[in-house]
Structure formats: structure tokens, C-alpha cells
């Protein structure tokens, strides 16, 4: 009857990647959905009101204050460098944490959209990541404000913070994608996550600096991706030093690895989501 080739053919889902070029085209075409969806989520949480935005600033300030108090009480004394380190690293950590927790819910939350629209599902964890990024940016303003009050010296080496932030951002995106996919199969990941995140916070050089660690303990930190990222971050934007090349490379390897693995799992499983959510 027809001589033209079909525009679309749908066949049984086989394990394996979808045609990547086509997937990318679909994703690129819908890129404004990602930010628009993030915006609507922020609107739902009232982050687009005056008080919502003030809260975005006050909340991290309060957090860093509480942790600083904790350090002063436990360690007995503390200096301003320590406080700057704590704030900078805590804020970066919350970026990772928020993209993890947001990503975990993203696919399940978008269930209705998934059941009624054909679109690259990876846009959902991506938009959770965008939300985390939007929440992260104002905290940087807070940090630089704190930093100038503390009177720490400024310098060009601080620019190393940009590649470090990009590495950490890539890592956070990878985590968001990986966890969103895992959460479809194991719905209780969302409830484990806060405990996991808290532990991770304590195990990473955030409340303390790398140089405070015993050398023996440092070798364990090879297993912690945040270790090298936090160290490089602190060196760059707190101490105005060039981060170790090793930290940058390790961080980049973790980030790319997580993103690749996460995307691979997501893309191979995503056609299965609609019949599972």
C-alpha cells in the first residue's frame, strides 16, 4: 500500500543502547524543557518568591554556622581559614547532595509525564541537577561575601575553582542520572539516601582539611571521589593555591566514569520505565 518508509518503528525492547545519534537529536530539540521543568519545580517549592530566595541564602549560612560551632566545640579552637574551608566545601557538597536526592525522586515523580509523553527520560534527572545547580549558585555569592569579611587574600589561582566546580558538577550529574535509574528498581533508595549522604559528609574532607588527616587514613580516601574534589576546591578558592594535578585528574576520572556508567545504565533501562512506574 505504502511505498514510503515508516517514520517510526517500535519494536520490542532489547537490552542495549538506543540509537545514540537519534537520542541526542531528540534531547537537543527538547533542551529548553529541562530548564523549564526545573523552573516549574522551583516554582512549586516557592523558590521564585522573595522569601524563597532569601531562604536559599540563609539556609546555607545557618548550616555552615552550626557546623562551625560543632568544630569549635569539638576541636576547642578554630581559625578563619578553617571556617572558610568548611563553608566552601559544605556548599559544594550540598550541590552534589541535592542533585543526588533530587535525581532519586525525579523519574518516579515524573510518572504521569512518562506515561503520557514520549521524550528522552534522561531529561528528568538532568533537570533535578539543574535545580541543584540553581540552588548552588547563590551559595557561592554567600561564600565570597564571607571570604571578604574574613579578609582572606584574593588571587588568580582562585580561578582553578572553575574547572574543579565543573568536574564536581559532572560528577553530580552522573550521580543524579545513576540514582534516578536505580530508584525505579529499588524504591527505598530515597530513604537510605539521607543516612548515606550524612556519612559521606563526615568521611569527606569538609569538616576537616586533608592536611589534618593521618597519612594512614589518607590511603582509604582513594575510594572517596569527593576527597580529591574537595581538596582541590579548598586549595583553589580558599587558599588561593594551584590544586594538585593528581587531585584534578582523579576527580575528572571519577566524574567522567560516573557520568558514563550512569548514562549507560539509564539509556539501556529507560524504555522499561513506562511499564514500571
Amino acid at each position: 500500500m505504502n511505498k514510503t518508509a515508516p517514520v517510526e518503528v517500535y519494536e520490542p525492547f532489547k537490552a542495549g543502547l538506543p540509537p545514540l545519534k537519534r537520542y541526542w537529536r531528540m534531547l537537543w530539540k527538547r533542551r529548553s524543557f529541562i530548564t523549564e521543568y526545573a523552573r516549574s519545580e522551583l516554582h512549586e517549592k516557592h523558590f521564585d518568591t522573595v522569601f524563597g530566595q532569601v531562604w536559599l541564602i540563609i539556609n546555607p549560612l545557618l548550616l555552615s554556622g552550626v557546623y562551625f560551632l560543632l568544630i569549635v566545640i569539638i576541636a576547642g579552637n578554630s581559625d578563619k581559614m578553617r571556617y572558610a574551608h568548611l563553608t566552601a566545601c559544605l556548599f559544594l557538597y550540598y550541590f552534589v547532595n541535592h542533585s543526588m536526592s533530587g535525581g532519586a525522586k525525579s523519574v518516579i515523580k515524573g510518572g504521569k509525564l512518562i506515561l503520557n509523553t514520549a521524550f528522552p527520560r534522561i531529561m528528568l534527572p538532568m533537570s533535578a541537577w539543574v535545580i541543584a545547580l540553581i540552588r548552588f549558585l547563590p551559595t557561592m555569592i554567600v561564600f565570597f561575601f564571607i571570604r571578604s569579611i574574613l579578609g582572606l587574600p584574593w588571587g588568580w589561582n582562585m580561578l582553578w575553582g572553575i574547572p574543579v566546580a565543573m568536574i564536581t558538577g559532572t560528577f553530580a550529574l552522573g550521580l543524579s542520572i545513576l540514582i534516578s535509574c536505580a530508584n525505579v528498581y529499588f524504591r527505598d533508595i530515597g530513604s537510605f539516601l539521607p543516612y548515606f549522604a550524612r556519612t559521606w559528609l563526615y568521611l569527606s574532607p569538609i569538616l576537616y582539611e586533608v592536611k589534618n588527616l593521618k597519612p594512614k587514613l589518607r590511603s582509604f580516601e582513594l575510594l572517596n571521589p569527593l576527597y580529591s574534589m574537595m581538596d582541590a576546591w579548598s586549595r583553589a578558592i580558599v587558599h588561593n593555591q594551584v590544586p594538585h594535578l593528581e587531585s584534578l585528574l582523579k576527580g575528572a576520572a571519577w566524574a567522567l566514569g560516573t557520568l558514563l556508567v550512569g548514562t549507560y545504565f539509564f539509556l539501556t533501562r529507560e524504555r522499561d520505565f513506562a511499564v514500571r512506574v
Partner: peptide, 26 residues
């Protein structure tokens, strides 16, 4: 194209727009 078939095959010759029960208003 929202649900992949478990068996068989669907060929679509053109652009599809759907009006599923709860599509708008998710």
C-alpha cells in the same frame, strides 16, 4: 511510542500527537 511493545511491531507513517487521558496537567 511511550510504551515499547513486548512483542510485535508498530509502524507509524507520520507525526503522532496523542490526547491521552491525563497528558496535559501532569
Amino acid at each position: 511510542g511511550i510504551l515499547p511493545p513486548s512483542q510485535g511491531r508498530i509502524e507509524v507513517y507520520g507525526k503522532v500527537s496523542t490526547l491521552l487521558a491525563l497528558g496535559v496537567g501532569f
